[in-house]
């Protein structure tokens, strides 16, 4: 019973936090561009509205792939220790989380490929290349963390950073942190990597409810990646509020940096993502292997 309750609470937190963060990002960006912007709860109304509309296109395979992707991401979020707790006892293996996140990405790619939209195939091809690059960067960061702690368990990583700010990986592994921040920019489809996953283009040809599910996917995506980097580099958190505050700080840094950059063209964006984030992650791996 407690496990079921914990899972329900965790799913609700992931959905609400993700949607709230997405709304705050819209409002913040609007204010930075001297626009008034939508209220930060606008994402909730948008999702509710999309679910209330009658589905025009019935694409069962595409929809089921997208739901699988959401379920996969939510399953991955169960393995991240938020504050002190997880819904169930688990070593929270990083490889399991990596596997679930990549499964989610491949599933949503497969689902969006079922779209009837004219341009979605181009968008999905770009997204496919980006996901391979993202997987490479992410696994390099995971291996460098694993080398440092001799364990792929997130619990071990979080407990290894207890003892104050100087023990956090942001101080001890700054190169890896910069690599993971570039990865965060890319995976949240923020500028300069905004063109890599064109979410609005990918969903052309789908109906409203499918689009609502895709919006859910992006919201959980925000939650899970900020949560992961919080545990990996910012020492996790002692409680829920502490943890969410760190997540929010990470996310708002990404949002505030967005207007600084232009939206790079696809080839350039991919090149910078792979060679900067990938090279920095690799440097951190070499440092962890031979120096630290």
């Amino acid at each position: 019973m407690n496990i079921a309750l914990g899972i329900i609470v965790r799913v609700s937190i992931a959905l609400v936090t993700g949607l709230l963060f997405a709304g705050i990002a819209r409002k913040t960006l609007a204010r930075l561009e001297r626009r008034y912007g939508p209220p930060f709860w606008q994402e909730f109304f948008d999702i509710i509205k999309l679910f209330l509309k009658r589905e025009r296109v019935s694409n069962v395979f595409g929809l089921s792939c997208i739901i699988f992707a959401i379920a996969s991401l939510l399953a991955a979020s169960m393995f991240i220790p938020v504050g002190n707790g997880m819904p169930f006892d688990s070593p929270a293996c990083l490889i399991t989380i990596y596997y679930l996140i990549m499964a989610a990405y491949l599933a949503i790619l497969l689902g969006l490929s079922e779209s009837n939209g004219l341009y979605s195939i181009f968008s999905n091809a770009r997204a496919g290349i980006f996901i391979i690059g993202y997987g490479l960067v992410f696994i390099t960061i995971i291996i460098s963390i694993t080398v440092r702690y001799n364990s792929s368990s997130l619990i071990a990583v979080a407990s290894g950073q207890i003892g104050g700010f100087t023990h956090w990986n942001i101080v001890t592994m700054p190169v890896g942190f910069i690599a993971s921040m570039i990865m965060l920019h890319g995976v949240l489809t923020r500028k300069p990597f905004g063109a890599l996953i064109a979410d609005e283009v990918s969903v052309t040809g789908f109906g409203s409810k499918t689009y609502a599910f895709v919006r859910f996917f992006y919201a959980i995506n925000i939650y899970i990646h900020t949560a992961l980097i919080t545990v990996l580099f910012l020492g996790g958190g002692t409680g829920f509020l502490d943890f969410t505050l760190k997540q929010f700080l990470l996310f708002i840094v990404v949002v505030l940096l967005e207007p600084v950059f232009a939206r790079y063209r696809i080839k350039r964006a991919l090149g910078i993502f792979l060679f900067m984030a990938g090279a920095l992650a690799f440097v951190q791996l070499i440092l962890n292997l031979y120096i630290l």
Partner: peptide
């Protein structure tokens, strides 16, 4: 346009009629 900021009321333009109200 952004001068009248209709986005604060949840009004915005979309380019796919399937998502429009």
């Amino acid at each position: 346009n952004n001068v009248y900021a209709l986005e604060r009321y949840g009004i915005k333009t979309v380019f796919d009629p399937a998502k429009a109200d």
